[in-house]
Design a protein around this nucleic acid. Structure first.
Lengths: 233, 233
DNA sequence: TTAGCGATTATGTCTATACATAATTCCGGA
DNA sequence: TCCGGAATTATGTATAGACATAATCGCTAA
């Protein structure tokens, strides 16, 4: 039985083999269905999924063409720090360094962007791997959007772990960069002289409302974020 | 007419509204189809696509549950440097700094991993934004896999632009990190004292054969890579 | 020559039905 | 009580047929 996966793999193989170079028109769904002896729906699903990964582009009436691979995307998984450390076979440690409730004001503009006056929970925590500082987390949580956060014991549960379980979100934004560490970074992450930090800034929203902002600082020389992407199949 | 998009949006909305919190079981395809007055295939496509984004998880017989958002993935687009610079409204500049053909040996292990003895094209180029150094590119191309690269004039076309047009690939891997610059980085990127670099390392394969390895160094203080992800819809 | 319109075509989506497959539940026998 | 197999159930996939929609092609008339 030929399934949509078989057609997908076959077309993928033929593209990689150079049978259809970038820009070339591949056979129509009807032709592929006839060639592989399936219903058009099966060929449709195969080619539709290839189009979703960006390998081909489809237009009604004009047919399906192999994409010129400008600006392909990579799927980067940003793991929960604890899972990441444990997956590497290291012992996870966690400490809450600071907890404050502040009125939302100018200080938070460009980060959480809270409604004026809405209270903001500010947390600072440290994640350790085998006792070594691994990630310094500075977080803001909008208490108007997530009132429950006020009563959580963040000495026991890290904000990340609590949030992903308790609060849904609809949109997120990540910024990656390399930076010269602040004095805080330097002492809390016990950085070597001149060691840079790898920064991830993440903001998440639920609808239009900002849920949380977080700055994650890692010892740059000791941190790597990896991703793999496939053409599917 | 209710389409699969409508069901997708409706379910998404109900999850965000808290009707089905993380871990909760959502109605079966049959129930959703009945509720929205469609065929099961339509509900199937809606929920299947939500599962592809990681919002829900599906298991045969056990049903569909809202995901506990541990380790969600963000889709990070890694743009072609020229497009990135021009999109920011800046003038793109490019220079080839070095070009060599070397026999593949130990030096390339862990990077391109070429077949022993296969020739390797090594390129160093600089990408500029408004005349300022923006990205330093060190690249290895396996000439056994991509023989055409030997005859390309890389003073006119950057390797990236040529490769994405001319060579398909089936798999890629990215590593992001922050690092202390090498002496080369420092002089060629005209870094300020103690300014770190933001590094992207990418390797791509065609089937089992390594196509290219590249190290992209950016002035850390002046470079940011951003991504946005949505729940779809 | 060309503007415009209808025919054509490939993709997009939906339907109803069918069978496959994985996983849980239930029930009976040892 | 515990084990194993059968029934049940939700998802996974395929089918043939139908109509919608976008875009192109080609013909006709101005």
């Amino acid at each position: 039985m030929t399934g949509y996966r078989d057609i997908k793999e076959a077309v993928l193989r033929r593209i990689h083999a150079g049978e259809w170079p970038p820009g070339a028109l591949i056979p129509s769904e009807a032709d592929l269905a006839a060639e592989y002896g399936t219903a058009r729906g099966t060929a449709n699903r195969a080619i539709r999924e290839l189009a979703e990964t960006g390998l081909v582009e489809r237009r009604r009436r004009a047919g399906t063409r192999v994409t010129h691979r400008a600006g392909r995307s990579a799927l980067v998984a940003i793991p929960i720090v604890r899972a990441e450390i444990e997956a590497a076979g290291r012992r996870y440690g966690y400490a809450l360094l600071d907890r404050r409730i502040e009125p939302g004001d100018q200080r938070h503009i460009g980060r959480l962007d809270p409604q004026a006056g809405a209270p903001v929970l500010a947390l600072t925590c440290l994640h350790l791997a085998d006792g070594e500082p691994h990630q310094l987390e500075d977080r803001l949580i909008g208490l108007d959007v997530v009132p429950d956060a006020r009563d959580v014991d963040f000495t026991a549960t890290s904000p990340n772990e609590w949030l992903v379980r308790a609060v849904p979100y609809s949109r997120s934004e990540h910024i990656f960069s390399a930076a010269t560490p602040t004095e805080d970074d330097r002492s809390r992450l016990r950085l070597r002289p001149d060691e840079p930090v790898f920064l991830i800034e993440r903001r998440t929203w639920l609808g239009a409302k900002p849920v949380t902002w977080v700055r994650l600082a890692h010892p740059g020389a000791r941190y790597r974020m990896a991703s793999r992407d496939h053409d599917a199949a």
